[in-house]
Amino acid sequence: MVGSTFYCSSCAELHDGPPLSYGTPAPVYWNADLADQPGSVLGEEQCVIAGEHFFVRARLVLPISDTGGEFDWGVWVSVSEAGFDRMSALWDKPERVAEPPYFGWLSTELPVYEPTTVNLKTRLHTQPLGERPLVELEPTGHPLAVEQRAGITMARVQWLAEQIVHADPRAN
């Protein structure tokens, strides 16, 4: 790596980064046809599908063990209607940081993990105003959960960047 660029082992070219954050614009269950359906809305931070399924945008942070930094997956988590209503009621209130964690299901397919990351159990921790909630995965043997607990290296961050840069767009 050289400064804010890296040589890609896939194509041997110089790329910007590697980025320390990737995100998805919508939960895995969202599709463009839902935008016209009653009770369905996709916002920057919240999503509702058919008035029955409720999602919140959040951060799933992986510590970078050899730099002390963080790698951030921008993800969506499904929560209960009651949890969604409570979070919405406190959205602009500083006291939201005192809320206990909300149970949820990871609703983002992260492209580099097997088995799927969809429906991993989570605890969603609200943060101060202006910050997205943090996702804590159930401590299982799933590779993403292991990385959240143990951390990743900058070499792994570069590998993630290479996989995402060179992903087949038809596979998404």
Rank of each mutant, 00 (worst) to 15 (best):
P38Q: 15
P38R: 14
G39H: 06
G43F: 05
E45N: 14
Q46T: 13
C47S: 11
V48Y: 02
V48D: 03
I49G: 01
I49W: 06
A50K: 15
A50E: 14
G51L: 00
G51D: 02
H53S: 06
H53A: 10
H53T: 07
F54T: 01
F54W: 09
F54N: 05
F54C: 05
F55Q: 10
F55V: 04
F55I: 05
V56K: 12
A58F: 02
A58M: 03
R59L: 07
R59T: 11
V61G: 04
P63W: 01
P63A: 01
I64P: 00
I64V: 15
S65I: 14
S65V: 14
G68A: 03
G68I: 03
G69V: 03
W73F: 09
G74W: 06
G74A: 11
W76Y: 08
W76N: 01
W76S: 09
V77D: 08
V77W: 12
V77T: 07
V79M: 13
E81C: 10
E81W: 10
A82Y: 00
A82I: 12
G83R: 10
G83E: 04
G83I: 04
D85T: 12
D85F: 02
D85C: 08
R86E: 05
M87E: 02
A89H: 10
A89Q: 11
A89D: 14
A89K: 08
D92E: 12
D92Q: 13
K93N: 04
P94I: 09
P94C: 09
P94F: 09
E95V: 07
E95F: 11
V97H: 11
V97N: 07
A98I: 05
E99W: 04
E99H: 06
E99P: 02
P101T: 10
Y102P: 01
Y102R: 08
F103C: 01
F103H: 12
W105D: 12
S107E: 10
T108E: 05
T108A: 00
T108W: 02
L110I: 13
P111L: 15
P111V: 14
Y113E: 06
E114R: 15
P115V: 02
T117D: 04
T117M: 10
V118A: 08
V118T: 13
V118R: 12
N119R: 04
T122E: 08
R123C: 06
T126Q: 14
T126F: 11
P128Q: 07
L129N: 13
G130T: 06
G130V: 00
P133S: 09
P133D: 11
L134V: 07
L134S: 00
V135A: 15
E136N: 11
L137P: 12
L137I: 07
E138C: 02
E138G: 01
E138W: 09
P139H: 12
P139V: 12
T140Q: 13
G141F: 14
G141H: 15
H142I: 04
P143G: 11
L144I: 06
A145H: 12
A145D: 14
A145C: 11
E147N: 07
R149I: 13
R149V: 13
R149P: 03
G151H: 06
I152G: 08
I152W: 10
T153A: 13
A155P: 00
A155F: 05
R156G: 04
R156W: 12
R156I: 08
Q158E: 14
W159N: 06
L160S: 01
A161L: 08
A161D: 05
E162P: 01
E162W: 10
